[in-house]
Design a protein around this nucleic acid. Structure first.
Lengths: 346, 346
DNA sequence: TTTAGCACTCAGAGAGACAGAGTGCTAGCA
DNA sequence: TGCTAGCACTCTGTCTCTCTGAGTGCTAAA
């Protein structure tokens, strides 16, 4: 695979990405940095087609990159595209205005900006919170036989749940229960909270068991709830303008966004590009992936530890050279902002 | 407007609803309960067209009901269609299995069943919680300068919010604040919580003002949050199969479902049918309504008091005679189930 | 008031022609 | 050996034309 063939591949991809039309040999020959005739290009394109990097929609049409072609392009032809300095500044100032925002707000504005800029859908998930640890459990009486359990983790997540008991608790019972929970659960990681562990808790309560078990059950559900990752999706409607994506697929995705969770959680580092073909192969159990789509995912971190992922879902025919630098910028920016915040808060 | 014209209108609607094709005079003449010739029907249809109840897509096509035509049909031709008894039983048994469910769960399963049956989108909102009153406010220290505010209403809604202060509070301050909030807020209705009222609260705190105002601010945001109605939408994808609805519109709706809130909150009683034309007229400020759609809304109640609304969004060309009885059934069923539950709980 | 008959209209499907873009192959040139 | 010019061939998309069928409105008769 010589240098010229790579340049031709890159030219086909660039051209196809902007026009959306199959690219012919003459178009390529007319480009300034290609100095061979269209006949030569035709020969090279035939080879690229045999390698599975290009394909023809029909005999008398130009060439279109295959998803393997895109892969080679991204890997070998894109060498570190950068965001223009003025664009960086513009975005920096946008984030400067929003310094006060919470992490949630940050993710919201990052995904919507990303969706706006790339004309794709932007997604984000926080990292699996399984390793965060319970820092506080409170039980608060709030009405006749009605109690609210409040669960707080080291990562700062707070959730509550109301439980109704058979009987009202007296002060002593309440104190016992709070102390009991603190003793057994403080510092325990969420992922260690198994149903078995809760069974043990119930037995350990001895005489209080019968009265308090609904609370323990509620607590279990609450911890399950905490384990759930938050998915943010923005700009899915942008995908509608891509003819190569089926509307049916897009809407199915909108109604059932969670299917992309396992794909987002795949292990990798840095920026990762994935096509619907890959997803179908690696996650056959997922009922649904948008056909002909690609997903570009990056990771953001908080004080050096993985904190979540940010991605773009778009058509396979996507201006990767433009989009990837943006994604890099945003992941880095989010990492900085949430890490700083932590610093000046503690 | 004589009886025969009404029967012809009904026949056109019924026929159009099932076939989706404009209906010609011959088709109507062939129906068993119409005993006049096609020429007579043509004359009547010309009159119905002048009345604005029917229209022709083009000169040599059959007739199609206008939205006014549907209105007259629903009002005068449908005389109380009923759900077949066996269907009622089937649904009853479905709900019997789910007696343990919460109100949320009930709404979830009702909307998804309704969407499934009608092949439309089903929506639900709870009633505006503006008249529920604050029954409890708690402030719980959870870490360094970190406090969680817990707000509980008479309707049983619970929400929390974390606030970070400049300084840690000592026990006395915390006690003061809790007592202060209970004194001023207990029994106050959510709709009375204005920014001005919070300003007064802050001033009334005297010396504590500076330290505690972030908590008051947090409390205000929490109360705003509580006022927000919960919207449940299910089965929007079903709408994609209707050619008369624009995909663009449907997707726009999916991404921005809240726009239907004001429409759902319109005052009415019983079952109410509304067309996108009506919605555009009555809610011109709403940026978006699905064109050619209709929305059928009913109300469910809890112990006789309005508790929320359940609706169907579908194409204007909809089998109203089938769909409306289902909606009636579901609203009544939900009302019964949530009311019963309340009884045996207090 | 209803009906039968007739001329008229219009959309949609199908066939055929044509232009244009692009290819593969062959033969010649550096 | 690698590149190029030229040519025949292929295929799609578009345009035009025609034809069919469904449906109407109008008129005259029952």
């Amino acid at each position: 695979m010589d240098d010229r063939k790579l340049r031709i591949l890159a030219a086909v991809v660039d051209e196809y990405v902007t026009t959306g039309e199959p690219v012919g040999s003459k178009t390529i020959a007319a480009l300034p940095d290609i100095n061979v005739s269209s006949a030569t290009i035709r020969n090279d394109m035939a080879v690229l087609e045999q390698l599975g990097l290009l394909e023809q929609p029909h005999t008398s049409a130009g060439r279109v990159p295959t998803f393997q072609g895109y892969k080679v392009y991204i890997e070998k032809c894109m060498h570190g595209a950068q965001l223009p300095a003025e664009e960086k500044q513009r975005l920096d100032s946008m984030f400067a205005d929003e310094q006060l925002l919470t992490e949630d707000g940050l993710i919201q504005s990052a995904t919507s900006a990303l969706a706006e800029i790339t004309k794709c859908a932007a997604v984000a998930v926080n990292a699996m919170p399984q390793f965060s640890v319970i820092s506080k459990v409170e039980v608060i009486p709030t009405g006749k036989r009605l109690y609210v359990i409040l669960l707080i983790t080291s990562a700062g997540n707070i959730k509550n749940k109301a439980c109704r008991l058979e009987f009202d608790l007296n002060e002593e019972q309440l104190d016992f229960f709070t102390a009991f929970l603190t003793e057994h659960l403080h510092g325990v990681s969420l992922s260690d909270l198994s149903p078995e562990m809760f069974d043990q808790l119930v037995t350990a309560m001895g005489a209080y068991m019968a009265t308090l078990s609904p609370l323990v059950q509620g607590l279990y559900e609450l911890s399950r709830d905490m384990m759930r990752q938050e998915l943010t999706v923005n700009g899915t409607r942008n995908l509608l303008t891509c003819e190569e994506l089926k509307t049916q697929d897009i809407v199915e995705f909108m109604e059932n966004q969670d299917v992309i969770m396992p794909i987002l959680n795949d292990t990798f580092s840095g920026i990762h590009v994935m096509f619907s073909e890959d997803a179908k192969r690696d996650h056959p159990q997922e009922t649904f992936v948008i056909g002909n789509s690609s997903m570009i995912v990056g990771e953001y971190s908080k004080d050096g530890k993985a904190a979540g992922r940010l991605g773009i879902i778009g058509p396979m025919r996507l201006n990767y050279a433009k989009v990837i630098p943006y994604l890099e910028y945003f992941t880095e920016k989010i990492s900085n902002l949430i890490s700083e915040k932590e610093e000046d808060d503690t």
